[in-house]
Structure formats: structure tokens, C-alpha cells
């Protein structure tokens, strides 16, 4: 069975749709499974992903060529580590312009590195158009949509919009009560460590809520991984 290294491009052209939360969750998912992910935070001004993983997430500016070298050369490094990029919404156009200019997708596929776009969908027209623009440019690119129900809530009848995205599947991240959100915003709180041994000084209610919140998200990540492994199997 041929294993392909994954590069997760966690992105959206819109602000405040939960991109950094997904990058954080994915990083903790891999840490929990004893895999060593490498992360990149493309918001050089107010990074929201890197503070949770100061030792494994690099902050860079994609409008600067030195930042591009750190990012894209790092994504192609043959180290068998999953890579996670938190694409800040203001970096979104420049990020994909650079991807196009340097032929990143083509080179990645050539090297058995599989870029996976985790596209954070919302109810806006720009979001849908952005997804289609990516799909039309790179039809071979794997795209999953992510709906963070807490960050971009939609009415039940609006959920239909997700069927119009050119995506292979959807991850859903459930909303959380405000006190739990506050607890999660603590940058010293590692979700993977939390699942291994929940802090005793944390409210039992909050602990239960976090566990209940994380479990279905990690189950989705695991299902995705298993599906990818099955798809790349030579024996099926």
C-alpha cells in the first residue's frame, strides 16, 4: 500500500470562520495518535494557531519570499510528517497566487505529497465562488469543506448551500458554550494532553463538554484518514 504524506491547507477567504481552530484540532489529533505534525501560521501580525504549539508551528509572511521558502520548501520536505497550514484570510489570495506561480500542487503530487484543502465554508457568495475558483484551477486537488457551526452558524434551510461546493466531503465542528470556549482559548491547554489526562483543576462540566466536543471531530478526522488509506490500497 502506498502511503502519501498529507499537506492540509486550512483556509477560507472569509474572516472568523474557525480556520485556526481546525488547524489546532488537526494538530492535536495527530499528536494524540503519536504522529509528529509540522504547522505553519500565515498570520504574521496576530497568529492564532502558533501560540498553541510554539515548538512546532512556524509563523511566516507569505507575501515575503523568505516566508514562502520556509513554507513551501517545508511542505515538500520528505520527512513523512503531516503538514498543516493555517491560511489567514488576508493571506488567502497571495497564498494561492504563489501556489500557482511556483507550481506547488503539481510538484507535490509528483513527490507523492497529497495537498488537501480544508475549505471553511460559510453562507456567503465569496466563499462559494472561492471554492469553485480553486476547483476549476486545480480539479485534481482534494477539497473538503469544513463547517464550524459555532463560528459561522447557518439556518437549517441554508445548509443546502454545502451541496453546491465542489468538495469530496464535509467536516462539521459543533458549537460550544461560552465558558468552554473561554477554557479552550488558554494557549497552554493542549487538547491531546487533555485527552490523555484531563487537568484536575478544571471544572468537571467543562471537561465533559470539551471531551464531548472533540470526540466526534477526531472521529471525522480518523474516518477521513482511514478512507484515504483504503483508497490508496493496492489490494482493493
Amino acid at each position: 500500500m502506498k502511503r502519501r504524506a498529507n499537506v492540509f491547507i486550512v483556509c477560507s477567504p472569509s474572516a472568523r470562520v474557525g480556520v485556526s481552530t481546525t488547524a489546532r484540532l488537526l494538530t492535536d489529533y495527530y499528536l494524540l495518535t503519536n504522529t509528529e505534525p509540522a504547522g505553519y501560521d500565515t498570520d504574521p501580525h496576530e497568529p492564532r494557531y502558533a501560540p498553541y504549539f510554539p515548538d512546532r508551528v512556524r509563523v511566516l509572511d507569505v507575501s515575503d519570499i523568505r516566508g514562502q521558502i520556509v513554507l513551501f520548501d517545508g511542505l515538500l520536505a520528505d520527512d513523512n510528517r503531516p503538514k498543516i497550514v493555517d491560511v489567514w484570510h488576508r493571506s488567502f489570495p497571495r497564498f494561492f497566487e504563489t501556489v500557482q506561480d511556483i507550481g506547488f500542487i503539481e510538484e507535490a503530487l509528483r513527490r507523492d505529497v497529497e495537498p488537501v484543502v480544508l475549505y471553511h465554508a460559510d453562507g456567503g457568495r465569496a466563499s462559494l465562488e472561492g471554492a469553485w475558483a480553486l476547483h476549476e484551477h486545480w480539479p485534481e486537488l482534494t477539497m473538503m469543506i469544513v463547517h464550524n457551526e459555532g463560528a459561522s452558524p447557518l439556518e437549517p434551510e441554508e445548509i443546502e448551500i454545502f451541496h453546491r461546493y465542489p468538495a469530496q466531503g464535509r467536516f462539521v465542528i459543533a458549537p460550544l458554550p461560552a465558558p468552554v470556549v473561554r477554557a479552550l482559548s488558554d494557549t497552554t491547554l493542549s487538547l491531546s494532553e487533555f485527552l490523555r489526562s484531563p487537568p484536575v483543576d478544571m471544572s468537571i462540566v467543562v471537561r465533559a463538554a470539551i471531551k464531548a466536543w472533540i470526540a466526534p471531530i477526531f472521529a471525522q478526522f480518523q474516518s477521513f484518514e482511514l478512507r484515504r488509506q483504503l483508497e490508496s490500497s493496492n489490494y482493493l
Binding site: 519570499i65 521558502i69 513551501f72 506561480d101 511556483i102 507550481g103
Partner: peptide
């Protein structure tokens, strides 16, 4: 050489 720089030169 950096893939990024090579990519720019190729384009």
C-alpha cells in the same frame, strides 16, 4: 536549491 525559487524561475 529552494523549490520556491526554482518554481519562480520555471514559471
Amino acid at each position: 536549491q529552494s523549490f520556491v525559487l526554482r518554481g519562480y524561475v520555471r514559471t
